[in-house]
Structures are given as structure tokens and as C-alpha cells.
Amino acid sequence: MHMADALLSPAVGTTFWAGSMGIIVYCAKKLKENIDERMIPLMGVLGAFIFAAQMINFTIPATGSSGHIGGGMILAALLGPYAAFIVIASVLTIQSLFFADGGILALGCNIWNMGVYPCFIAYPLIYRTMVKTGSGSRRILIASILSVIAGLQLGAFSVVLQTMLSGRSELPFSTFVYMMLPIHLAIGLVEGFITASVINFVKSMRPEIIESISLSRSLSQGVSIKKVFTGFLIMAALTGGVMSWFASSHPDGLEWSIEKIYGKPELPEQEHGIAPALKQVQDKTAFLPGYNFKQSDEASTKLKGGESWPAIGAGTSVSGIIGSIMVLGIILLLGAGIKILKTRRA
């Protein structure tokens, strides 16, 4: 499930961009330290493989509709978490450009949702602990299904959280969760089954391939669980910090969704929390002066005044609509003008 630009607020989007970029840098460092040269073309080709394989459809059992694979756990199982994460991130980047899946701002969220959970949670905690070199196909099947489900559930939950934090969608938290998680449970079952079957297929047809790849994978491919959790703590703190900062200046985003969840426009502790302090710093440093926040402050006072929508007189809204139509008209005319000029010249 791809997160989309239109559902994101700048704060959530950029936070996850930063988070995902940070992990890419970390993985790149890890790979640089110990990588077999063979891995470089292998990673590239497997990325292209996932891309192409996603274009092949199959009929989902018992439903009759068709689906395609995600492939994240196949990559993690073959390449190890660091290389797999880089490959997943690059596949998503290319998809965000060529297919516009989600969009460029949402890319950070998508890499996070579809890369971090399978590579750094599901793989080390489930797949790796269950599957050892000599494991049979049944064990691989169970491990794959469990880890794929775990990865997808976390990813889907993360989509819900990102949507909620951005506050562009009115979808109630609980409804959203009830819809997303069961769907992804079903997807996870099928995907996990396919993951295991493909791994077992390669194992039975060309066992030496799996062996040589696992030899190429560098020695220290284990993920330290401590590091994973430290990373998450930092991310959580970062998210919280940025969120509350934006929340203090941007009532339309977080507070609206908080209102939906808590039935109150603001979290109780916010008046004493980090937010006001950050806001003062922000006022002093004047981040993007005059651009956005001042105006929002006005809106926020109106909001606190008990109205859910800053009062708009009939006059202003009509002029807004007329203006919109005129602006669009002018833009389209200009665009058409450039086109005509260009074809004439050609």
C-alpha cells in the first residue's frame, strides 16, 4: 500500500524522508565496510527483477482477482537486510518517478513502511531466528509467512499513523486500522506463501546459487537488535519533536486528527509540553519568515475560540471561487499558447 503525497503534511513527509535517508546512509556505510564485489551487480539485477516480477499477475486463490508480489522478504532472505533495504529503497524511488506510485514526498514514508519493517524487524527477529542453513522447506514456509505478515502489518499500521498525523483525511483511526490490518493479513498470507515457494524453488533447482550468495554476503550481516531499537527511539523522538513543533503552529494538521481521536482539539499536556517552548524558539529564529506560520497562528487563535473553521464571509468565498476559475483559465490559456507557438515554430 503506497502512501501518497496528497495525504501528507510537510512535517510528516519530511520527517520520514529524513528517517529513510538516514537508514540508507547507514546501510550504505555498512555495505561499504564489507561487501563482496559480486553483490553489486546482483543487487542491481535483483532490483530490476522485483520491478519486472511485480508486472506479472497471478490469480489469487479463492478470490478470482489478480495480484502481484511485493518481494521485499525474498530480497531480505537472499541479500541480507542492508543490501535488501538499499534495493527496496531504489525500486520504490524508481516507481515513485515512473509510475508516480505515491509521489516524491511520500517516498520517505513508503521506503520506511516497506523497507524498514521487513528488513530490520521481520527479517532479523523472525526469519533469521527461524531459518538456519540446513532448514527444511516447511520451516522456510512458516518463517516466510510469519515474517511477511509481520512486515506488512507494521507497514499498514504505519500508513494509518502517517495519515492520522498528517490530518488530511477524516478517516477515523479505528475504522482505518480495522480496514487496513485484515486486508494486509490476507495479502501477507499469499505473499508469504509465494516468498517461501520461490525460495524453495531456487533452492531445489540450483542449490549452489543460494549457497554462493550467502557466501558473498559479508560476515557481519546480523542486525544488532539493540541498534534497531535505538534507531526507533531516535525516530520516535524526532517525529514527536517535529510533530509538536508543527502542531503548535499548524492547527489544521495534527490537532484536527487529534480532535478526531480524542474528541478534544488538543492533547491535554500540550500547553506545558515541548511545543510552546519550541514555538518560542521558532518565533525567534523566524523560520521561513512571513511565509506560513504567522498566518496559521491567527487561524489557531480562531480555532481555540471554539470554531472548527475560521469564519469565512460569503463574500470572500465567492471571490475565492471566481478567482480560482479565472486563475485556472489563465493558466490553461497560457499553456495552450506556448504549445501553439511551439508547434508553429517546429
Binding site: I24, V25, C27, A28, K29, L31, K32, I40, P41, M43, G44, V45, G47, A48, F49, F51, A52, M55, I86, V87, A89, S90, V91, T93, I94
Partner: peptide, 19 residues
């Protein structure tokens, strides 16, 4: 990071071949 950029280039190159 270079590894990531190389991945993008590699995937772009082989995307069409594998597709």
C-alpha cells in the same frame, strides 16, 4: 550515498532488459 545511486542506475538499466 553512492551505493544507492549505483543501485538506481543499475535497476534503470536492467529494468528494461528484465521487463
Amino acid at each position: 550515498p553512492k551505493v544507492f545511486v549505483m543501485q538506481l542506475l543499475f535497476i534503470y538499466r536492467y529494468l528494461f532488459v528484465l521487463a
